[in-house]
């Protein structure tokens, strides 16, 4: 819940998930957020908004993962979802050339809407179907590099490459957020273009050696 994030320095990021219907983007993100202690996301069917908390270098990082309407008929609605995103995961199916082309269209749109502030990750899913690959590794990696995106290969089925993907994305989002914060503080008031990407809550409370909660 908003307002409770106090203690140390914490980051809160919004990350949109894009990909055609059958590329496995839902499975991929469910794999990432599921754990043996809490599988309610799967039992309740809900896969449109998911949260994942992780700790990097002693800092708390909360990633809100927004599934984005990807069907063609909802194309015009995309910007409503992208707004203020810190990261975007664009998923294609390595066995489906069309899904890769679709990713290219989204990259163009995201860059147009959000500029360079958004961290992009292009993800070739279903590497368990390597023998049916229709998008070559070289082509995908070359394209990702050309648009300033990172490229990952994953298999939601085998739970492969997913943690690495999100860790890398988190690192990039933290770097970008820290850059924006330092830019903002060095040129006060000229923060144009840098979205409210991060919540950094400085420790305002006096530190205590002992005592119960609060």
């Amino acid at each position: 819940m908003a307002g409770q994030s106090v203690g140390g320095r914490n980051y809160n990021f919004k990350c949109v998930l894009l990909g055609e219907g059958c590329v496995g983007k839902t499975s991929l993100v469910l794999r990432y957020v599921e754990n043996k202690f809490n599988d309610k996301h799967i039992t309740t069917l809900q896969a449109s908004f998911l949260n994942k908390k992780l700790n990097i270098g002693g800092k708390r990082v909360n990633i809100s993962i927004w599934d984005t309407a990807g069907q063609e008929r909802f194309h015009a609605l995309g910007p409503i979802y992208y707004r203020d995103s810190n990261g975007a995961i664009l998923v294609y199916d390595i066995t489906d050339e069309d899904s890769f082309q679709k990713v290219k269209n989204w990259v163009k749109e995201l860059r147009r809407m959000l500029g360079q502030d958004v961290c992009l990750c292009i993800v070739g899913n279903k590497v368990d179907l390597e023998k049916d690959r229709h998008v070559t590794v070289a082509e995908a990696e070359e394209y990702a590099a050309s648009v300033g995106a990172r490229h990952f290969h994953t298999s939601a089925k085998l739970n492969r490459g997913i943690e690495e993907l999100f860790l890398d994305l988190s690192k990039n989002m933290i770097t970008k957020a820290d850059d924006n914060t330092s830019k903002k503080s060095s040129s006060l008031g000229s923060g144009a273009g840098s979205r409210r990407s991060v919540i950094v809550v400085d420790d305002e409370q006096p530190t205590q050696k002992s005592g119960g909660c609060c």
């Binding site: 409770q4 203690g7 140390g8 700790n55 002693g58 708390r60 530190t207």
Partner: peptide, 15 residues
């Protein structure tokens, strides 16, 4: 949000 409000974890992060 346990870790966000946990005094034990907070002590680890600070003192």
């Amino acid at each position: 949000d346990e870790l966000d409000i946990n005094p034990f974890f907070r002590a680890l992060q600070t003192t």
